[in-house]
Write a protein that binds this DNA or RNA. Sequence first.
DNA 1: GCCAACGTTGGC
DNA 2: GCCAACGTTGGC
Length: 226
Amino acid sequence: MPQTRKRLAGTTGTDKKGPSRKRIQTENPDGASAKMENPSPQKILASKNYGKNPGSHWLMKSEPESRLEKGVDVKFAIEDLKVQPNQTACWDGVRNYQARNFLRAMKLEEEVFFYHSNCKEPGIAGLMKIVKEAYPDHTQFEKNNPHYDPSSTKDNPKWSMVDVQFVRMMKRFIPLAELKTYYQAHKATGGPLKDMALFTCQRLSVQPLTQEEFDFILSLEEKEPS
DNA sequence: GCCAACGTTGGC
DNA sequence: GCCAACGTTGGC
């Protein structure tokens, strides 16, 4: 089993600091209209049975550039997946409940966009598929792992992972900036990306896509970069 | 169970 | 390197 490290979402926050508190709440820049009309990300995700049906599509984020987390490099680019034995790796280290629940909903053979985050050019790099459904993430029990969770027990593991296999690179890299342009246009016109989780649930590292979102993004491969 | 503020995410 | 956004923590 390949041991790979991916950047994880979420905060386990196992070691709490001292009692000092000083952060001030950030103010909404446009003052008066503090309450947005937008439905909450949770409502959006809940409203569509995302991830509940067989044949769902997904997007998972990973960092393609080196970055140390507790002294361990969390870099994992699509090129790193490609050179694993069987081009397969376990997607470990997810420490966010919503993301974990999506991992647990994933079914064999479902397709997943490999998204490069926290890097020079963020965006969708390629396609992979689920080759093993959710099982306990071993890194939660490893004291020296950056994603060690002392609150989890082997009897009742908190965190799950899946195995993914490389399918192919995108015919061209689909940059975040381009997706965002479509998202903003579609929000106004009601196009396929109007609720895309990449923008409505910005910090979610494992997220579902509708068939329409998935198909639209694939169609961008054939288009000129905009 | 509320909610202040902490710490992380991740684009820019 | 900055910092907005936001999920999580923990005092009360």
